[in-house]
Design a protein around this nucleic acid. Structure first.
Lengths: 137, 137
DNA sequence: ATATTATATGCATATATGAGCATATAGACA
DNA sequence: TGTCTATATGCTCATATATGCATATAATAT
C-alpha cells in the first residue's frame, strides 16, 4: 500500500531532531558532515547520527563517504523527494530553523578547501576558532 | 520550541489512515461527514472518528456540527496550514489516494440538497442506492 | 603499533502508539 | 417515552519508539 510508505516518510520527519536535521540538509547549499550538523544544531553526536540513519533508511538523504568523514545530502536523485524537500524548506521557517542555518554558516567558515577539517567542538573552542578566522561570534 | 509543534503535526500525518483522511478532506470540494469518509475509504467507523479527533487536535481540520451529523473540513482559517495542505494535495497522488477520491465522488451522489442523508452503508447497499440514482458502479 | 578522532551502533528502559472491540452520548423521530 | 442511528470514546494489549549511555568501528596521525 502506497499510503503506508508515504505516511512512513512523514512519520520520520515527525520528530523535532530529525526535522531539524532534514531541514538543515535540504536548506544547505553543501553536503554536510556529521560534526558540522552537531555543531550547527548543538545536539549530541549520537542523536544526529541516529537521525541520519533513519533519514537514510527512509530514502531522504544519502551520504558520500570520504574516509572518516561522511558528507550527507538530500537524495535528489529520487524524483519523488522534490515535492517533499520543497515543502520542508517552506514549512520549516522561524525558530529554531533560522538559528540552525545561522549556526551552520558559522561552522562552515571553518572548512578548508571545501572540506571539513575539524570534528565537533565545545562552544568555547568554536568561538575561539571563529575569532581566529576573523568572524564575529 | 517551534520545531516540536511542526514535527508533531507531521507525526499526525505520518499514519496511513490519518493521511488518507486528511488528503480526502483537503482534496474534497465539500465538507464531509464521518459516514461519507467511512464509505469513501472503506474503513471502520471508529478508526475514522479517532483519526478526525487527532487531526482536529493538531489544528488541521475543523467541524461544523449539524445535529448528529458533523461536517469536517480542512482548517484554512489557519494561515500556516496552507503550505501543509498544498503539500498534501501534491504528495498524495497515486493509489490509494486516487481510489479514495473516486469512492468519495460516488458516495457524494447520495447527498440530497447538499446534505448527507444516509449513514455509512455496507458495500451492497451502497451499490444498490447508486444504481437507483442511475450511476454506474 | 598506539593513540586519537569521526562516526555508528547495541542495549536497557520508559513511554507512546495503534488496533480492535465494546459501549457511551446525543440528536431525530416514531 | 423509547428506539434508531451518527458519532465519540474508554479500555486493553501488543508493538513501536525515543532516550541516554557506553562502546564498537575504522580511518588518521604520531
Amino acid at each position: 500500500m502506497e499510503a503506508k510508505i508515504k505516511a512512513e516518510i512523514l512519520k520520520i520527519l515527525g520528530d523535532p531532531t530529525r526535522l531539524r536535521v532534514a531541514h538543515l540538509l535540504v536548506a544547505s547549499p553543501k553536503s554536510l558532515c556529521v560534526c558540522e550538523i552537531v555543531d550547527a544544531l548543538k545536539l549530541l553526536q549520537y542523536r544526529v547520527s541516529k537521525s541520519l540513519v533513519m533519514l537514510r533508511r527512509a530514502g531522504l538523504v544519502d551520504v558520500d563517504r570520504n574516509g572518516t568523514w561522511g558528507y550527507y545530502r538530500p537524495k535528489t536523485e529520487d524524483e519523488t523527494n522534490h515535492v517533499l524537500f520543497d515543502f520542508v524548506k517552506e514549512y520549516c521557517s522561524g525558530e529554531p530553523f533560522d538559528a540552525d542555518l545561522a549556526g551552520l554558516s558559522k561552522r562552515l567558515v571553518l572548512r578548508e578547501g571545501e572540506k571539513c577539517v575539524v570534528g565537533f567542538l565545545p562552544e568555547k573552542e568554536l568561538q575561539k576558532l571563529l575569532r581566529k578566522k576573523g568572524v564575529a561570534a
